[in-house]
Design a protein around this nucleic acid. Structure first.
Lengths: 148, 148
DNA sequence: TATTGTTATACTCTATAACTATA
DNA sequence: TATAGTTATAGAGTATAACAATA
């Protein structure tokens, strides 16, 4: 059994995109969780609230599609947010299969504060990049994620 | 209840780093899984094998540290790799608490092929960026992840 | 027949606590 | 006392299948 025969064409694991994306997300999640803790919400919950405010108040299914998550995942997220008084479900008058989901006044205020908190978390996360590089980093991520 | 009062300072959820990193990683994971399927290994397993080849053959704990994961997570990963005949645990002669972990010959061949496969998955993942931008994207990720 | 919300269920990934064997 | 490996366990997060209500 030979020792340490470095293989050509096998780069260090810390240069691999899989490693980098995993740990980048872990670091940002930790920073965001910490920043949101005073508000008593998670980053996932803030993301749902953010999606509710884009365009018309969505059904649960439409809200899930805006976040590119499954509708069954949305159920539990809305249960949590409703229990905190941050969102309301109301039956759609025109199609009673659908629930229209909207932020409450408390939800709107919490969203604004949570956005400020996560903006700050993002700034800390990106602190090792120049401001121009940080903008480019975000654009590159949008490019590789695509429309989904 | 007002409808759709767009709040100033609340950007679309698809511009948030949390959303982008989550879905970027999801997309790369899907591409990598597909590329590795003929080899019968996961991206996580390939990452462990890659870490084993950097520097001296590590103990389980050192291998975990190279990947910045918990040593209890490493146990199950090595169980899987050992069951496939890709790695070997052998007791450290100098300190019998430690297991030295090394790739088998099959493991080394699988690592080389798996690296080629995930290189190709990374190229597809980055296809919307120029070659120079792709390099810069990777460097930026390394900068924000830091030494951990 | 198809769609929306829901529930039950299961699977992946991860970490914490406690055990064992060694040091 | 402390460390390396292990096990049991639990908690996120996610998805699939099946059901009820409605279209």
């Amino acid at each position: 059994m030979k020792t340490n025969p470095t293989e050509p064409g096998v780069p260090p694991v810390r240069n691999r995109l899989g490693y980098l994306l995993k740990h980048a997300r872990e670091r940002l999640s930790a920073l965001s969780s910490e920043a949101l803790q005073p508000l008593g919400i998670s980053g996932r919950q803030l993301a749902v609230m953010t999606a509710l405010l884009e365009g018309e108040p969505p059904s649960q299914l439409e809200a899930a599609q805006r976040l590119a998550i499954d509708r069954t995942t949305m159920v539990a997220l809305l249960d949590e947010l409703e229990a905190k008084g941050l969102v309301e479900r109301r039956a759609d008058a025109g199609d009673r299969r659908r629930n229209i989901v909207a932020l409450t006044d408390l939800g709107r205020r919490t969203l604004v504060e949570g956005t400020r908190a996560t903006d700050q978390a993002e700034r800390i996360f990106l602190a090792s990049l120049s401001s121009a590089d940080a903008d480019q980093f975000r654009r590159m991520l949008q490019a590789v994620v695509g429309g989904d």
